[in-house]
Design a protein around this nucleic acid. Sequence first.
DNA 1: TTGTAAGCGTTATCAT
DNA 2: ATGATAACGCTTACAA
Lengths: 330, 330
Amino acid sequence: MAHNPTMKDVAREAGVALRTVSRFVNGETNIKPELADRIAQAISTLGYRRNLAAASIRPGWTSKTLGLIISDLANPYYSALTSAIESYARERGYVVISSSSDEIGAQHDRLVDRLMEKRVDALIVVPPRDPGRDWALVPPPIPPLVFLDRPANFDGADVIIADNTGGARDATSEHISHGARRIAFVGDSLSIFTMRERHAGYLSALSDAGIIPDDDLIVNSAHTSEDAANAVMELLKASKVDAIFAANNRGSVGALLAFKQAGRRVPLIGFDDFEAAQLSTPETSIVRQDVVEMGRKAAEIVFDRLAGNSSPPQTYVLPATLVLRGSELP
Amino acid sequence: MAHNPTMKDVAREAGVALRTVSRFVNGETNIKPELADRIAQAISTLGYRRNLAAASIRPGWTSKTLGLIISDLANPYYSALTSAIESYARERGYVVISSSSDEIGAQHDRLVDRLMEKRVDALIVVPPRDPGRDWALVPPPIPPLVFLDRPANFDGADVIIADNTGGARDATSEHISHGARRIAFVGDSLSIFTMRERHAGYLSALSDAGIIPDDDLIVNSAHTSEDAANAVMELLKASKVDAIFAANNRGSVGALLAFKQAGRRVPLIGFDDFEAAQLSTPETSIVRQDVVEMGRKAAEIVFDRLAGNSSPPQTYVLPATLVLRGSELP
DNA sequence: TTGTAAGCGTTATCAT
DNA sequence: ATGATAACGCTTACAA
């Protein structure tokens, strides 16, 4: 691998001063055409490429890089968020370093440090379930910071979340409107923010209808589709369930698996769309969060902050809308 | 946002020389404990954070960054690849800049330039369908380069692809072994490398069985699941199809949609696993490529090259294995 | 319009 | 063990 030619090399080759090459490279116009030609020539023969890393350390210059920390890129939900952010950033000439915390606080913290050391211009973060270090302990300056999908206990950052509570309430109310009284909640641990919110929405809908929640109908240990399937099988066996609200798409898939295995279904509404939803019979109704919009909004806020907007940080709650496809019916 | 403290600031605060702070920060041991304490103290009170961008411009130092260009992060296939690469890189202290070319050559080229200007240590690239600039025209030095998922016309790079031909041949042969003779190929444009390969495997299996391919059974215009569903509906109506080989998972989903709509199915084998495969009845058989392994292997090669291995570039063909779940049966 | 020289935050050489 | 001081590749006052 040959040596990497520098501006100095170009200047020597073209027989001009370093400064002139810099001007040329930065697209300044006041250069005698003849010199410009010589420089262009030199750049091409030498195969010069400017070193953005070197440029970025000058005061007032930036890396044109966004740092993104999500929980798991292999999860379609987070890769959709990442994709939306990356494409918004790319249009503005920024690149994105995306990394996964795997929900582990220490790993998240290490990534934060790393990205700040790399001097990313801004940080978009999905706070990990396992909390990690308090943001108040991170020494300033902290670049523009946006919490995505979940809030965190720090008031220097904007927050973008979906209306988890409202969506869950709507789904549960829909079940109730069809006469269901014994509605199961099938989800993951309540240590997860979104689960707590959805659980709250579920309870609130029950309460509005004067239904007293039954602990036997609440599953919050379904980490995988298989877990959810097993739980739903139990519920079906006891045959005391009128309808199911699946609080995430693993829950929805689990319910479908259980229906298939049991040869019997009950009304189902899930949270979050999933690929198989339209292949099931009946098609599966869900609460949809606009993932692309969430990512886009996060990027938008970041660039707004980068542009100098220093108004107090805000929390943006994006709508979660009920999409009925048939599975809500008895 | 306060000023960003530098090593110099730390040195002044601690009353030591710049060099000593550098030693401390880089974890060197030969420092008098007392000075080390003063430095640690100063770092903490000042909130100093080393500037990796500045460090990386020194000769022999690198950005510890991998550049990744895929076609579309929103596609689960590519996000799975990205996830595997990122996690392998993270374990080694590297971060990944991932970006999408959207299959557009010019966009791909722009990203290549950008990433090389940022001095990424290596590049992992999914060559875009729409070719873009010839790699031979890119001035050296080119960092270690790996083509992923598809080859490109350049021999300075390692290549990692799946055995698309073999997988397609196996799937088609499986259909034949169950007595099918009129087997449809449902896929996307043959301008896509993987499609050409899978199509070749399909033809080769037919040929081995002495079956003459029928153009009416070959669909290569299914860009979406809906396209595929329509095509399969047509095939079913003509009722001259014994079995379907879906050359990607949009094709598989389309076939399932068509089966549902037509109220009738034929044996089906797809290429690439998909979430709904195990929810269908019967469960859908597919050819599985080990996506995680492909990503892991790409990262592994990159680090091997980074470690100095300069043997001639190789092409690695990873297995694509038939996973039978029932849908291959009549 | 062009060039000289200082400086960005870091690491590395070489004395001490 | 510690400290001046010179790089690294770039941008930018300031001169010419």
